[in-house]
Nucleic acid binder design. Sequence first.
DNA 1: AACTATTTTTAGATTTGTCTAAATTTAATT
DNA 2: AATTAAATTTAGACAAATCTAAAAATAGTT
Lengths: 215, 215
Amino acid sequence: MTRSEENYLKTIFHLGSGDDASINTNAIAEQMETKPSSVTDMAKKLAEKGLVNYKKYQGISLTDAGIKTALSIVRKHRLWETFLVEKLDFAWDEVHEVAEQLEHIKSEKLIDKLDQLLKFPKYDPHGDPIPGKNGEFQEHNKDLLSELPVGAHGVCVGVKDSSSAFLQYLDKHEISIGKPIQILGKEAFDGSLHLKIGEREHTVSHQIACNIYLK
Amino acid sequence: MTRSEENYLKTIFHLGSGDDASINTNAIAEQMETKPSSVTDMAKKLAEKGLVNYKKYQGISLTDAGIKTALSIVRKHRLWETFLVEKLDFAWDEVHEVAEQLEHIKSEKLIDKLDQLLKFPKYDPHGDPIPGKNGEFQEHNKDLLSELPVGAHGVCVGVKDSSSAFLQYLDKHEISIGKPIQILGKEAFDGSLHLKIGEREHTVSHQIACNIYLK
DNA sequence: AACTATTTTTAGATTTGTCTAAATTTAATT
DNA sequence: AATTAAATTTAGACAAATCTAAAAATAGTT
Ligand SMILES: [Mn+2]
Ligand SMILES: [Mn+2]
Ligand SMILES: [Mn+2]
Ligand SMILES: [Mn+2]
């Protein structure tokens, strides 16, 4: 399994949000910052190996074997991210790029021992679930802040956007995983929310609210 | 810098034992399990980048820039090996292959933090020195067990052969870094040595004695 | 249904790193 | 010094992963 093949499987997995939905060639190309023709080439190769279902013009979906492989890469990515934050004091906005490299290291023992060192974490620094050895994982039953009514309150359990820029915005406004958040009011005009975050009050735009998960 | 380029630099560095001696094309090919023609191709590319000195038929040597790059890869390799043994309970014969992959991860912050987590180790699990951030390192002033006279005693500080097979042999006979060793006698016929290892006595072949460093 | 726009695929080229086989240079031996 | 052997380089090919440009299929719209 090459690094490129692994990256395609992971991208298809994320675009299909885990299930075996059929994904567009163009969507994969955009996500991977490559060209549609390259995606077609890889689709054929992965189909050959039994990792994706592919029929010309019909989109691409993961087979069971493909899902299993994708989950093992996601597991590695999220364990490494957790390691970087927990053991090496990385900030949560600094881990993704390094984990993109580390997720391709091939050693089952390494990842098992890492899991053990981290005490078998269930969620990564962004609140995303870490699949177990056999691919099992439990997603938080969470809601987007933007879809909750005024008065709702809960605890931040994850972010949808994991970009460095967004995470740094959250840091600046002291929003982090575990923080209690309450919706004090909503602006009808632009959907911006007035929030109580811990002990403080802040107003955030609709765009921000679309990327924070509450439980 | 590609992974392949890094591997060539590291190999040239090891074959030249650190200094800027001129290395044979064939020696590099054999060490890397590749063909001499591939080495020639890479020599040209690395020369183009100013990392090696290369003139047709004259052998290959590292430039200062090449030595610096090689040292940073060796640093990463040995820090990762130390991490695997110290933090993840790997045995010293299990770390090399994984470190071969990990040494190519690109993140200065990662390696600095790792160094810190390990408390800035000076030697790796095989007794090899770990270069610092600026490439500086101190080799143990050590001697091969095979070159010491009868009666000599010291402490094992390193191994020359880091193969899994050899390290497992050492484990079996309870030879490890830090163990006191004394030469009780030498067999004139085949050069095998009668040793006191800790509290025990063992006889080892000349071949074994050629791969253990004492101080 | 016909036309247009979008998506997707094909054909052919490129880069990187490798290989084989043949040619060339250097080293060793008569 | 001539010959043989060994080391090294060149020439040409190949697989992987990508790209561009053009063709084909599908979807959307008059
Ligand atoms: Mn990530
Ligand atoms: Mn994450
Ligand atoms: Mn090693
Ligand atoms: Mn080592």
